[in-house]
């Protein structure tokens, strides 16, 4: 049995009186692609942000490679964040830097790469996401699909072991969704461990190893895509699927 790369134990998170995550215990194995789906406001983003401690859990544990993030000091948490790339719904590219600079910043400032090394690596990644001709463009001049691919390249530049995606295509015009999903699919094919929050059911069916259905602060179901879409066990999931598959 392989050792899990992410282990979540009795994770709970409240904002004031609002208990968003109630009690979550799950694990992610290396190379797995997890797709998290569920109704809006169900705590998916909060859950993802707890995985790299952008959000501090109220209780419970989140371990990466056996290290419990909730017990580590800031410095070590920063180091472990390098291992978990994150892609946001709203891209969050640095608007004052070119595409190339966006990608080079963290490798140079955090990993201490030389300018030449970082530049070379950035170009490789831009080729991977088909955007090398936009290296010197500023983010504002990019389409949503291009911006999100740059964001993925930027996260990959830290050579993470895991990639977290929070609704990466929700802010895109429909015709651009495909180009981003293709990049993600390729990543999955290369063996990247991924946790993806998405409403793209096609992607979930074809790429996911496991589907986690999340609602009301719990992971209600954890099953294979085939099982989940054919035989949703909980009423909550049946209800959800009937709404989106119509």
């Amino acid at each position: 049995m392989t050792k899990p790369i992410i282990e979540v134990q009795n994770l709970a998170k409240s904002f004031g009186k609002n208990a968003v995550l109630k009690d979550i215990t799950e694990q992610v194995d290396p190379g797995q692609v997890i797709v998290v789906i569920g109704p809006s406001g169900g705590g998916k983003s909060t859950f993802l942000r707890c995985l790299n401690l952008l959000e501090t859990p109220t209780s419970g544990h989140v371990a990466f490679n056996g290290e419990d993030l909730t017990t580590l000091d800031t410095k070590r948490v920063n180091e472990l964040r390098e291992e978990m790339g994150m892609v946001f719904q709203s891209f969050n590219l640095f608007p004052n830097m070119t595409v190339l600079e966006n990608i080079k910043l963290a490798p140079m400032k955090v990993k201490g790469l030389s300018d030449a090394q970082a530049t070379q690596r950035a170009h490789e990644l831009l080729q991977q996401v088909n955007l090398d001709d936009h290296a010197d463009a500023f983010p504002t001049s990019l389409s949503g699909g291009q911006a999100q691919r740059v964001a993925i390249a930027r996260a990959l530049a830290m050579d993470p072991k895991v990639m977290l995606f929070d609704e990466p295509t929700s802010a895109l015009d429909p015709e651009m969704v495909g180009e981003v999903l293709n990049v993600m699919q390729e990543l999955a094919n290369q063996g990247m461990t991924m946790v993806v929050v998405t409403h793209e059911m096609g992607f979930a069916k074809s790429v996911a190893d496991r589907i986690w259905f999340m609602a009301d602060g719990f992971i209600q179901e954890n099953s294979t895509p085939a099982d989940f879409f054919a035989h949703p066990k909980t009423e909550r999931a049946q209800d959800f699927l009937s709404k989106i598959l119509l």
């Binding site: 390098e82 994150m86 946001f88 709203s90 590219l93 640095f94 964001a151 996260a155």
Partner: peptide
């Protein structure tokens, strides 16, 4: 400055100081 900028920088492993300074 949008809070998303801080999140992006922190998610890349940058410390709060580096985030402030460079981003």
């Amino acid at each position: 400055v949008d809070a998303g900028q801080t999140e992006a920088a922190r998610s890349l492993g940058m410390s709060s100081g580096a985030t402030m300074r460079y981003v």
